[in-house]
Design a protein around this nucleic acid. Sequence first.
DNA 1: ATAATTACTGACTGGTCAGTTATTAAGAGG
DNA 2: CCTCTTAATAACTGACCAGTCAGTAATTAT
Lengths: 211, 211
Amino acid sequence: MQPARQPKRQRRKEARPAEIIAAALKLFSERGFAATRLEDVAEAAGVSKATIYLYFESKEDLFKAIIREIATPRLDAIEALVEGFDGRAADLVRGLTERARAIAGSPDVRAVIKLVVSEAGNFPDVAAFYRDEMVLRGLRNIARIIERGIASGEFRRCDPVATGQSIILPIIMNALAREVFGETPELDPERFLPSHLDFVLHGLAADKETR
Amino acid sequence: MQPARQPKRQRRKEARPAEIIAAALKLFSERGFAATRLEDVAEAAGVSKATIYLYFESKEDLFKAIIREIATPRLDAIEALVEGFDGRAADLVRGLTERARAIAGSPDVRAVIKLVVSEAGNFPDVAAFYRDEMVLRGLRNIARIIERGIASGEFRRCDPVATGQSIILPIIMNALAREVFGETPELDPERFLPSHLDFVLHGLAADKETR
DNA sequence: ATAATTACTGACTGGTCAGTTATTAAGAGG
DNA sequence: CCTCTTAATAACTGACCAGTCAGTAATTAT
């Protein structure tokens, strides 16, 4: 064994909370909130269980901290996915492609999605927050874009809120499926996303001619 | 109070397992497997906790019984959703409309979906089963149909497996979202499904003309 | 009736884990 | 070097719950 000179205890007040949250997000998402032992979170974060209680009031508080500090800001990527468009079909596609990778690519975002799906029943306020601030707000934003496309004659007539779901839900569900079942060639986002974007363009296009 | 003549104990050997499974599916899906107390399952099923152990070896065995006896047969509805088509676009629509209600409508099916998503990480064999027998098999089936449509010139050229996801994933995700967040006007399947089917038809149609 | 069978239950147990407390030692300042 | 502060931990506690078992009552057989 090397003469490594790292003291067995390290004091890193600033880094701890983020490291604990990261470890907790991973384990909560993998195993579920109730099934995850705080001792395992501690080990994954490289601290003792008691240290967690220096920075968080309770297990539930740790859960909500994940939502506050990771989930909400990260899912802004999804918000952005929807708010970044300016109404042209071409930009819809470009926006979707670019930002969809935020969902498809980031393990954190996928973990958050699975965590919210799994634990919404046990945390009604968190569920309500996500329903209003993420799902419904996102849906309304994308609906606005589609409405503009219809008004300009670029898109065919349709229910914008319902059609918005046809566009984003598969992207979310594909990410969730990979999180749940693991990666497979069929679900590979590099394969799915381009195809889906194509599909969306054809589905939205005004009846006359697409290109 | 009426002179009701129900003995406080009832012996109903045949009915018990199904009732226990039904209660367990509901609670496991709402709260998660680990967070659900077997005493609550017992109460919801109208028996004592010990009775559960007359019919099931363990909590985990009860979980797998749900998968065996409820989940698998019920999700045949989804399989049917995909196997019922005969390749014509018109039948795609009709099949989708009819069978999508199986997913959208049945609380049991939605509960199963949420249960599998939430607990797949803790039951790898169950996850593998669902991945192979439901997700991938379903995807391959729908891909076959799309391939036929392409061959006949009815559908435009596309990646059939990827496009299949664009078709079914939103239906599943819509059902899951309602299970997780509760019913809202925006997610109402009576509103979403017809719109989605329309979207699918336009997305699949060969470039010339749809109707 | 009443004995035999068995579906069912109340009450208990052992283990697990969230949360607490007493103690230790890392780092700052002299 | 020797404090002094406080980040960090090991060891502990109490509640909760899966799983058990001895006993109870509904049903069937005699």
